[in-house]
Amino acid sequence: MGFLSRSKGSILLVEDSTLTRFYSRRLLENNGYEVAEAASGEEALVKIRERLDPFDLVIIDINLPGIDGLTTIEKIKATPHYRHVPVMILTVEAKISTVKQAIQVGAIEYLCKPFSSEQLLQRVERLIGRSENPRDILERMLRLEINRAKRGNSKFSLVLAQRTAAGRFNTASVKRILQKKLREIDEVLMLDDNLLALVLPLTDKEGAATVIKKLQEWVAEKGWRFGLAVYPENGGNGKELFGYAQTAISES
């Protein structure tokens, strides 16, 4: 999410108007954001598939050639690692029905055309401008999974993977390996230079232990310690689960 570029955040701008794309991209880049463009929903989905790390924000027009913006949002939200990425729609009509549809498929913000530079920057700033602490993102993920587990009377696991010695792979590289190897519903988050968090829905202690064993095989080097917490037996909220997993690392 922009680690290499040190930008304020990475944005995918999906807009069929060349003029609007040019204006918006220049404005956002001049204010410290990394911007990729797409002129259609199909092109946006290709760029999402090709990118190693998720964009921090997707800005998308509702009226697009080919598949429309609402359908594109649905497909984006069904893409691995994009469940928690904010989506903002651009629309020439602020009908309540249109905004409701967009929210139902996964958007959380909208901006009416024509818009001013201040309006665009304010909304982007609100969504990603202030770099969110990865632990806050994890807390939000855990809260979401707890709600899902309660509704489905199911379990999920939190795995913390801590790098304790230098090796062939740094933490960011291991994150990319995991994103390719794990299931589409699993989430991998880099908490700091030496700590990864894996959120594994519908996974009990035995299943999470299998994931840890596979991770050791994929990385094939020593210098990693693991902590595991399972909802609900190891904690009823995100703080308790994280604390339990941290303690498990220190005892491993």
Rank of each mutant, 00 (worst) to 15 (best):
F3R: 13
S5H: 13
S7L: 01
K8E: 14
L12H: 09
L13P: 08
L13C: 07
T18Q: 12
L19I: 15
F22P: 02
Y23G: 04
L27P: 01
L28A: 01
G32M: 02
L45E: 05
L45G: 00
L45W: 09
V46P: 01
K47Q: 11
I48P: 04
R51G: 02
P54N: 13
P54W: 10
P54M: 11
V58W: 02
I60E: 02
I60F: 00
D68K: 09
T72G: 08
I76T: 01
I76W: 04
K77I: 00
K77D: 03
K77V: 03
T79Q: 08
H81Y: 09
H81M: 04
V85F: 02
P86W: 06
V87F: 04
V87N: 05
M88D: 03
L90K: 09
T91Q: 01
T91K: 02
V92N: 07
E93S: 09
E93G: 03
E93A: 05
I96T: 12
Q101E: 15
A102M: 08
C112R: 15
K113I: 10
P114M: 08
F115P: 10
S116G: 10
S116R: 02
Q119A: 12
L120V: 00
Q122T: 14
Q122E: 15
R123I: 00
V124G: 01
V124N: 01
R126L: 12
I128V: 08
S131E: 09
P134Y: 00
D136K: 14
I137W: 01
L138P: 06
L138F: 05
L142V: 10
L144M: 11
I146F: 10
R148H: 12
R151Y: 06
F156W: 11
S157Q: 09
V159N: 05
V159Y: 04
V159R: 04
A161G: 09
A161M: 10
Q162V: 01
R163W: 01
T164R: 14
T164C: 13
A166M: 11
A166L: 13
G167D: 03
G167Y: 00
G167A: 02
R168C: 10
V174D: 14
I177Y: 07
Q179C: 11
Q179N: 15
L182I: 06
R183M: 08
I185A: 14
V188Y: 06
V188C: 07
V188N: 00
L189M: 14
M190E: 14
L191R: 06
D192N: 15
N194A: 07
L196W: 13
A197P: 00
A197K: 07
L200M: 04
D204S: 09
K205V: 13
E206P: 00
I212E: 03
V219K: 11
W224T: 10
W224L: 13
F226W: 06
G227E: 03
A229K: 10
N234G: 02
G235A: 08
N237W: 11
K239G: 08
E240S: 13
L241M: 05
Y244R: 15
Y244S: 13
Y244C: 12
Q246L: 12
T247R: 15
S250C: 04
E251C: 11
S252T: 13
